[in-house]
Write a protein that binds this DNA or RNA. Structure first.
Length: 412
DNA sequence: TCTGGGGTCCTAGGACCC
DNA sequence: TCTGGGGTCCTAGGACCC
């Protein structure tokens, strides 16, 4: 009998911060925002004492937050005010102005991520990564993995993670990934939930459709229009009806999902498909009026993707850009080269070509650069960047960007 | 008050080749 | 002069997830 666990760290980003600032325990704290944070200032101001001694009233509050951005994680006390992840900072500030705001410390989060995952792998080796704070674990072949439906092993993992990191997690164990994912939410935080095949009707069917991993806001809205609100409502429809309304692949999948059927394996290894860097500006920028600023950001994005590729040992063939207009519409353009590259100049030139194919009259709020069709750098025949060599990546050397004049282009 | 940054996968049309 | 399918690759957009 297959036994699959889904493990989800409780309020991971916030919990990592609480380890550093235990004085914030029990308070509403939100993580997110980024650049505008006062965190560094705080540390400098109280450089004379351990961070755990910084007084609570010295921390920055959500009510004082200025800028764009969304909440990455909210502590449970903050959630009581209706604040949750993916919520805009400004909206969160209205709901809970007294919440403390801290920026994401990616290095620290990654460190704890590696740490809790290695604890799990020592106990149960078949682990699938689902981002920094989540994994699927195959209990089926683990000695003792079937005892009490997986509860015994789940408890051991929970305890081992807590002892190694001081962090809590919630675990769902079920016949497959789909149900395990839903089950891990049943007893949050620091909970375990065991679901068997026979429980689907009682425990899964009453849930709202949105709880199915794969049904998002758009599908939820469409389901609601069809008067389907619970997973049981979907299960009550015929496969044919769902296919007629949602298409062959999605409709059939939805039917299976509602009946708790899912035979996807736990995948322990995977290769990246693309790497990208993007940034939302502090204020909307215009291609002509803010040309220099945009040019510098663009160059920086190209440089950073190139660094990411090199650091991880990949090259790519498809170079693309993404931009978001002030009205939140998104446009993408990409171009496939005849050779693989990780060279910042090559990426910059190809991305620059893409930029010329998109409307730049409207103000922009976001710019991104993506490299796709990746291959391992050592698995691909080495190709020199085509002559002439890539120009240096200074803004003044790339006058073709953002409505550069033809004369400037010729000069470049 | 809008709405981050990093991804994956799917769809659909057109090019191009056999 | 009209009429094929099938397969693969490229591109743009969009849904969804963490």
């Amino acid at each position: 009998m297959r036994r699959i666990a889904h493990l989800d760290m409780d309020a991971f980003f916030a919990s990592v911060e609480l380890l550093r600032y235990p004085q914030l325990k029990g308070l509403p704290v939100v993580i997110g925002g980024g650049r505008r944070s006062v965190d560094d200032l705080l540390l400098r101001r109280f450089a004379d004492r351990p961070v755990s001694q910084i007084p609570v009233d010295a921390f920055p509050l959500l009510r004082d937050y200025v800028g764009r951005g969304v909440i990455t994680t909210a502590t449970y006390p903050a959630r009581q005010f209706g604040v949750g992840s993916a919520m805009g900072m400004m909206k969160a500030a209205r709901l809970c102005p007294q919440a403390i705001v801290l920026p994401v410390d990616f290095d620290e989060v990654r460190r704890y991520s590696r740490s809790f995952k290695s604890v799990i792998r020592e106990i149960a080796p078949v682990v699938e990564d689902r981002g920094v704070d989540e994994v699927y674990i195959d209990f089926t072949e683990v000695p003792g993995g079937q005892r009490e439906g997986g509860r015994v092993l789940a408890r051991l993992i929970q305890k081992s993670i807590f002892e190694a990191t001081g962090l809590t997690c919630s675990i769902g164990v079920a016949p497959n990934k789909l149900i395990a994912k839903m089950a891990s939410e049943f007893n949050k935080p620091n909970g375990i939930s065991i679901v068997h095949e026979a429980d689907v009707q009682a425990k899964i069917w009453p849930l709202p459709v949105r709880k199915i991993n794969g049904i998002g806001p758009k599908s939820e809205e469409k389901l609601h229009k069809l008067h389907l609100h619970t997973i049981g409502d979907i299960a009550a429809q015929s496969r044919e009806w769902l296919v007629d309304n949602f298409g062959q692949a999605y409709g059939a999948w939805m039917h299976d999902a509602a009946w708790g059927r899912d035979d996807r394996p736990v995948v322990t290894e995977s290769e990246p498909v693309s790497m990208s860097r993007e940034t939302t500006f502090d204020r909307d920028l215009h291609a002509v009026r803010d040309r220099a600023e945009l040019g510098a950001i663009f160059t920086d994005l190209c440089t950073r993707v190139a660094e990411d590729l090199r650091r991880k040992g990949y090259v790519g063939r498809t170079i693309g850009i993404k931009l978001r207009y002030d009205d939140f519409r998104t446009a993408t353009r990409d171009q496939t080269l005849d050779h693989y590259t990780a060279d910042p100049g090559t990426i910059r030139r190809a991305a620059g070509q893409c930029l010329k194919r998109v409307d730049l009259d409207q103000r922009l709020r976001l710019l991104g650069v993506r490299v796709g069709k990746l291959a391992k750098a050592d698995a691909v025949p080495a190709t020199a960047p085509e002559a002439p060599a890539a120009p240096p990546l200074a803004a003044e050397h790339t006058p073709d960007l953002f409505h550069g004049t033809q004369a400037a282009r010729d000069a470049g």
